[in-house]
Each structure stands twice: as C-alpha cells, then as structure tokens.
Nucleic acid binder design. Structure first.
Length: 509
RNA sequence: GGCGCGUUGGUCAAUCGGUUAAGACGCUUCCCUUUCACGGAAGAAUGACGGGUUCGAUUCCCGUACGCGCUACCA
C-alpha cells in the first residue's frame, strides 16, 4: 500500500509572489489533486532579518485568487502543525544536536569576520570562492579542531556558535529526480552547510528535511536552483535515520527572461513592461511598487492556464485548459527539463481566449469593477450583460472593456469627425435629418427594424448603405470600432440614438 | 575557478529509432466584414557542433561549444 500523497509549497514571506513561485504552487497543487492527495502551505520564516509585514497575507490572497486553497496551512491548521517554521523553532535544535552526537555535524565558533578572512586568505584565481569544506574545516575554530574541554567552555560561557553538517569525503550521493532522472554528486565538492544558526533558528537545509519529515511529505517540488544543495538534504535524511520516508524529489526548470538569458526577475518586468508578480505588491520598507497580473487585467483562469503550459503540456496540442482539466491531465513526467523564456504576448493570448470563452455572467463583476473605476456608472446589470456579450471578443485584458463599452453608457464627448468629412455631403446630411423621424416612429426599436428603416430611406434617396454605416457608427461610438452598428443603436435606445445623431450633425455643420 | 543542470523555428513546444520534424504565439498575405475584432485559408521560420551505436538517428552513448543555476549564519 502506498502512502497518501502529500506535497507542500514552502515560500519565504519576504515579498511579492513571483511567476515562478506561482507555477511551483500550481504544479504542487495539480499533482496533489490529480493523485487525491493533500496540499500543504508551510511558511519558511526562519530568517528574522527578512521579515516583511503583509507578505504572508499576500501569499494567501494570491493562492485564493488562483483557486488553489491549501488543505493545511498556518491559517487553516491541520494535524501536522504548526505550519510556520518560526513556531517550530524548538524542535530543530534537538535534531541538530542529534547529528552532532552521531558525528555528522559539529559546532563552529567562527565569527563573521573570521569567515570573511578565510575567504580572502584562500581566495585564488583557481578558486575564487573558497568553501568551508572538508579541507578547510580543520583550519577553522570548531569542535573538530578545538578539543572537548575548550568546546564545552565556549558553549557554557555563551559564545555564539552554529552547527554545521560534516560532509563526508569521496562519497557519491545519488538520487532519482522525477524530472531529471538519475542525478549524482561527489560529497567532497559540497561544503559544510550551516544547519542551525547562532540564534537557534534552522537554515533552510535543516528545516526543509525536519519539516518534510514531520509533515509526512511524499513528493517535494522546488526550483532547479536547489539542485546543488540536494546532496546535503539527502544526507540529512540518511543521518537522521529517515531514509525510508524521504520524499521523491522533482526539481522544476526555471522561468527565464524573454530577452537574453537568466532567471526572470521583477526588474525584467519593469524594464519590459509586463507584470512578474501575481498581484500588486508594494514593499512596506522601500515603498517599491510592482504590478501584478491580477491588476493588469488577467483572469485567474488564464493566468493559471498560461503558467501550467510554461514547462508542461499533455502532448495533445490542446492549450486552453481549465483547472479541472489540468488536474485531470497533469503528470510530472511531462514536465520539461529545460527552462522556458516567458513570452508576454502569449500570456495575453491566453487571457483573450479565456475572455472569449467566459460567459458574460462570469465576467460581470470584473468588468463592472473596471468600468466603475473609470467613472462609468452601471445601473442595470442586464444591460451590462448584453454589452459584455457584444464586446468581449474585442478585449484582451480586462481594462480593454472600458474603451470597448464606454459608449454604451455615455454619450461620446468627442467624435472622430475627420473620418466622416472626406465623404460627407449634402445628401448624407439630409439623410440623417430625415432618418430621425423615421426612427422616432419605429414601434419595434430592434437592430433588424432599424436596419430596414435605413435601407428603405437609403434606397429612396439613392445612397449606398455602405456609405451610411461608417458615419452612423462614428456618430454613435465616436470612432471606427465596436460591434455591428445597428446592434449598438438598438442597445442604446431610440432617444440616445437620436441625440447622438443630432450632436454629430451639429459638429459636422 | 569548482560542481550541477540544460540545449528542436524569434518564443512555447510534439516526437518516447523509421513522419513531408505536429500544433500554438508572434509576423506576412489573402478571404469574411464597407468599423474594430472574431473566424477561415495560406506562407516564411527549427533539431548547437563533432564523433560513435544502429540497416536507420532530433530521438541512445561520448566529447566539444554555448547557456543557466549553485558556490551566505537568504531562501
């Protein structure tokens, strides 16, 4: 019998949630749901210097917006709490001490200055960044070099120290990554990472294994940047005696910047004009503002869909997939190995597809919020619904609804008379005067009957219908865009139609 | 520098040894529409390089190049 699938997303609450972070959550979430497992959110707040107010709430809101509610979290609780590492502080020391007792870790008393000194002394052209490793540790101040009495004396007199893992020499650590297959490392090339900091908090390295063990995590997904430290984690699982419970690892490819190479950063978004965070974020310390996909006008369905396809596909060629479909089709072995460059044009396409696919009802609240934000009063929801139905295939991002539907709610202030004038003449002027009483007399003010009225009068005055449609459109809309003219006329109503014709005639006179 | 990972069009990518090397985004042209879109049709554009293995390599292996990641008491 296999264990119930349990995965976790473990962000550090230090700022806005990056695209890549959301994708990592997404793959976790899809994997959990696909396998009927649990999805837990754990907060990695072991670095108290990096505490950022509001960052944790922000993460929750992002997940909620994307439709990925954790089954267990600091807020929802669960049987394996606490879910905030700072609240689990006491348990880490115990394990670190156990490692020391077992000879797999040691106390190190080196000060920051001494570490810096070591790095400058041993820095050479061949080795620009010396590591605290099996070669150098015997030259440092630690429980391997100091002698038992001295170590006890230092500790009891309150001298700050850290606990470091003692990496073995010339061993090969290998494991099977769900995405990359067999991966192996020579332990001699890995440094003695700090496990427990002087303030008693664990580093990521210790915390991730203690917590994954405690929370019975079965599959651990994280970014590719963690691959080099994987041997440390694996050895920790081994030394702690938990090898049988070690999760299966999957190191996800990175999301790269669109131009050039390298990890996509917030700065790239600022530079190239697209969002990188899920939602707006203002750093409380620096007041540095970063735009989010949500506020830029993305539907969460599209955002999630786009992210899912950045590094994964099911081989069917179908790209527009709902969360439920993604859950059904997701499989970790179809995740790419190589990083993917982010393409904002394609991201917009996903959103456009989702807007087209969505019902007016689905879009109603989002559009209403956008319109009201732009000073457009929506008093009749049914009217809004029919407007959305007419304009949604013209919108790529939510804010596009403003320009595309403004004229349904407000008489255009300025109209593009320049586009009418070249072909404007007395006949047309007369036509638009004569059409007014005809429209006014219409019993059934529908698109079809307005069109018939136009045709009849056009025929009688020997004017081509086509000659009339553009001016009429500009009178009603203000410019050369929008849905079918007669539909617009019918929607805004008789009175408004007549008003707009008159106004335009005045401007053309 | 060391270690690790990666490499199919401009971008996302299919192919699990045998195809004219899919499809999508973007771009160009055309059709539809006397608006703008949507929709439809067509086009240009791809296996980093060199060795193997094999009857046959984009696919498997090795090397080279290039790219990226890591190299903190940050995650």
């Amino acid at each position: 019998m296999s264990k119930k699938v349990r995965v976790r997303f473990a962000p550090s609450p230090t700022g806005g949630l990056h695209l890549g972070g959301v994708r990592t959550v997404l793959y976790n979430f899809l994997f959990a749901r696909h396998n009927g497992g649990d999805f837990v959110l754990r907060i990695e707040d072991t670095d108290q210097n990096r505490f950022v107010a509001g960052a944790e709430e922000y993460i929750f809101e992002c997940l909620a917006w994307c439709g990925m509610k954790p089954d267990e979290s600091p807020v929802a609780g669960g049987p394996y709490g606490p879910y905030r590492q700072s609240e689990r502080k006491s348990s880490y020391r115990e394990y670190a001490e156990k490692l020391v007792a077992g000879g797999h870790a040691y106390y190190a008393f080196d000060t920051t200055a001494e570490l810096e000194e070591m790095r400058t002394i041993y820095k050479t052209e061949q080795n620009p960044s010396p590591q605290y490793d099996h070669q150098l540790r015997m030259k440092m101040r630690n429980s391997l070099t100091l002698g038992e009495d001295e170590v006890t004396r230092l500790i009891s007199s309150g001298v700050p120290y850290v606990i470091r893992i003692k990496m073995p020499e010339q061993e090969t650590v290998h494991f099977s990554d769900m995405i990359r297959g067999e991966v192996s490392f020579n332990t001699s090339t890995v440094d003695d990472k700090v496990l427990l900091k002087h303030d008693g908090m664990p580093t990521y390295h210790l915390a991730v294994v203690v917590d994954d063990y405690a929370m019975k995590i079965t599959h651990a997904f994280r970014g590719e940047e963690w691959l080099p430290s994987a041997p440390v984690h694996i050895l920790l699982w081994k030394y702690l005696g938990w090898m049988d419970d070690m999760p299966q690892w999957a190191h996800l490819p990175l999301i790269l910047k669109p131009d050039g190479n390298g990890k996509l950063s917030k700065r790239d978004g600022d530079r190239l004009g697209f969002p990188v965070f899920a939602m707006n974020w203002t750093d409380p310390r620096t007041n540095d503002f970063t735009q989010g996909f949500r506020e830029r006008g993305f539907l969460p369905e599209a955002f999630v869909n786009m992210l899912a396809m950045l590094g994964w596909n099911d081989g069917s060629g179908q790209e527009i997939l709902s969360m439920d479909e993604l859950i059904q089709r997701f499989s970790i072995d179809r995740v790419h190995k190589g990083g993917a460059k982010f393409d904002f044009e394609k991201a917009k396409w996903f959103n456009q597809e989702w807007i087209k696919k969505s019902t007016p009802e689905r879009l109603k609240n989002d559009v209403k919020a956008i319109l009201e934000k732009n000073g457009i009063v929506v008093s009749d929801d049914n009217y809004l619904l029919s407007v959305i139905g007419m304009v949604k295939e013209r919108c790529t991002l939510l804010p596009d609804f403003t320009e595309q539907s403004k004229f349904f709610f407000q008489t255009p202030e300025i109209i593009d008379t320049e586009s009418i004038r070249p072909k404007w003449n007395m006949d047309k002027s007369v036509f638009f005067k004569e059409i007014q009483p005809v429209l006014a007399g219409l019993q059934d003010y529908s698109a079809a009957s307005i069109e018939t009225a136009f045709k009849d009068l056009a025929t009688a005055r020997s004017i081509k219908m086509g000659e009339l449609q553009l001016p009429f459109r500009i009178m009603l809309v203000g410019g050369k865009f929008g849905p079918a003219v007669f539909d617009i006329a019918a929607t805004i109503g008789k009175e408004e139609t007549l008003l707009r014709i008159n106004r335009a005639l005045e401007q053309l006179a």
